[in-house]
C-alpha cells in the first residue's frame, strides 16, 4: 500500500505545482503584459499626477513579482480584491454565482455520467454490431457539434414551437420540482448532449482496449459469456481510463457552461466571467479563471488517483 500512497502524494504535489504555474501564467497575461491599467482606466485626458496616484493605489508601481505574490496571497486567503466594474468585492460576486453553476454542473453530471457509461459499455459489448455502429455514428457526430447549435435547436423546438419551456433560465430561490425541471431541462440537455457522446466514446475505447488483451481471450476460452467477459474481466482493468474519460468530459462542462449560461441567461460563474471579459474587469476575470483552472486540475487529479488506486499491479502486499 505504501507504494500507492507515495504515488498519490507525488501526483498531488505535481498538481499543486501545475496550479501554481498556471496562476503565474494567468497573472502574467492579465496584469503584466497588457500595459498600464491605470492609464487605461483614466483614459486619455488624465494628468500624469492622477495616473501616478492611481498606480500607487492599485500597487502598479511595485515590481511584477511582488504584485504577483500579493495577488496570489489575496487569492489564497479568499480576498482577491475589488471588482473594477461595480466596485463590489470579487469574493462576494463569486459567492453569489458559484453555487448556481455547481447545481447546473452537478445536475448535468448526474444525468450524463450514468447514461454515458451505459452507452459505452453497451457498444463495447456489441462492438461491430448494429447497435454499436448506430451509436458510433451518433456519438461521433455529437462530439463535433457546437453547443450553441444544440442550444438554438432546443430553444426552437421546445420553446418556440412546442411552448413547453422558457428560453431563459433564471432559477427561483426555492424551486419546486416542476420549476426545477422547467429551468434546468434545456441547459442540462444541451450540456449533456456533447459530453455524453464524448464520455461514451472514451468508455467504449477504454473497454475495447481491454477486450483486445490476451486475458480476455482466455476468459472466453474458459466459457465466460459476453456479459461476464465485459463486466467481470475487462471493466476492473478499465477503471483508470474510464475515470480519466469522465474527468475529461466533465472538465469540458467548464467550457460548455460558458456558452450555455450565456444563451439561457443563466446566472452562473461562467456568464460572470464573460461579463468580466466584456468589461475588462481584471480582478474578477483572474479569480474566475483560477476557479476554472483549479476545478479542471482537481478533476484530472481525481481521475489519476482513481487510476493509481485501481491499478492491479499496485495491489497486494
Amino acid at each position: 500500500m505504501n507504494n500507492v500512497i507515495v504515488l498519490v502524494a507525488k501526483r498531488i504535489g505535481a498538481a499543486a505545482l501545475t496550479l501554481l504555474l498556471v496562476s503565474a501564467v494567468v497573472f502574467a497575461i492579465t496584469s503584466l503584459l497588457p500595459g498600464d491599467a491605470a492609464e487605461e482606466a483614466l483614459g486619455q485626458g488624465a494628468t500624469p499626477e492622477t495616473v501616478a496616484a492611481l498606480r500607487t493605489e492599485l500597487g502598479l508601481d511595485q515590481p511584477g513579482h511582488l504584485r504577483y505574490l500579493h495577488w496570489l496571497g489575496g487569492l489564497v486567503t479568499g480576498n482577491p480584491g475589488q471588482s473594477l466594474a461595480n466596485h463590489l468585492p470579487v469574493s462576494e460576486l463569486v459567492a453569489s454565482r458559484l453555487p448556481k453553476s455547481m447545481v447546473l454542473a452537478g445536475t448535468t453530471a448526474a444525468v450524463s455520467v450514468p447514461l454515458a457509461l451505459l452507452l459505452g459499455v453497451l457498444s463495447a459489448m456489441f462492438r461491430g454490431g448494429k447497435v454499436d455502429r448506430v451509436l458510433n455514428l451518433f456519438t461521433l457526430s455529437m462530439v463535433a457539434v457546437p453547443e450553441f447549435l444544440v442550444a438554438t435547436l432546443a430553444v426552437l423546438i421546445f420553446a418556440v414551437k412546442l411552448h413547453w419551456l422558457s428560453a431563459l433560465s433564471s432559477p427561483p430561490d426555492n424551486p419546486t420540482f416542476a420549476q426545477f425541471l422547467r429551468v434546468y431541462a434545456m441547459p442540462v440537455m444541451t450540456l449533456s448532449f456533447v459530453i455524453v457522446a464524448q464520455m461514451a466514446r472514451m468508455t467504449r475505447a477504454a473497454l475495447i482496449d481491454q477486450l483486445e488483451q490476451t486475458y480476455v481471450e482466455m476468459a472466453v476460452l474458459k466459457g465466460a459469456g459476453p456479459t461476464r467477459v465485459v463486466l467481470r474481466h475487462a471493466l476492473p482493468n478499465a477503471i483508470g481510463p474510464i475515470a480519466n474519460a469522465i474527468a475529461l468530459s466533465l472538465s469540458y462542462l467548464l467550457g460548455g457552461a460558458i456558452i450555455v449560461e450565456t444563451i439561457f441567461n443563466y446566472p452562473g460563474i461562467a456568464s460572470l466571467m464573460v461579463d468580466a471579459v466584456t468589461s475588462r474587469d481584471m480582478p474578477l476575470l483572474q479569480t474566475c479563471a483560477m476557479i476554472f483552472c483549479a476545478v479542471y486540475l482537481s478533476l484530472v487529479l481525481i481521475a489519476d488517483v482513481c487510476a493509481i488506486v485501481s491499478n492491479p499491479r499496485l495491489k497486494g502486499h
Binding site: 488483451q213 490476451t214 486475458y215 481471450e217 482466455m218 476468459a219 476460452l221 474458459k222 466459457g223 465466460a224 474481466h233 476492473p236 482493468n237 485501481s310 492491479p312 499491479r313 495491489k315
Partner: peptide, 18 residues
C-alpha cells in the same frame, strides 16, 4: 473451460491482472 480447456502461451498475459 469445462469439457475442453486451454493453456495459453504467455501466462503472464493470459491471467487477468486485476
Amino acid at each position: 473451460g469445462d469439457k475442453i480447456t486451454y493453456i495459453a502461451q504467455s501466462a503472464a498475459a493470459a491471467f487477468n491482472p486485476a
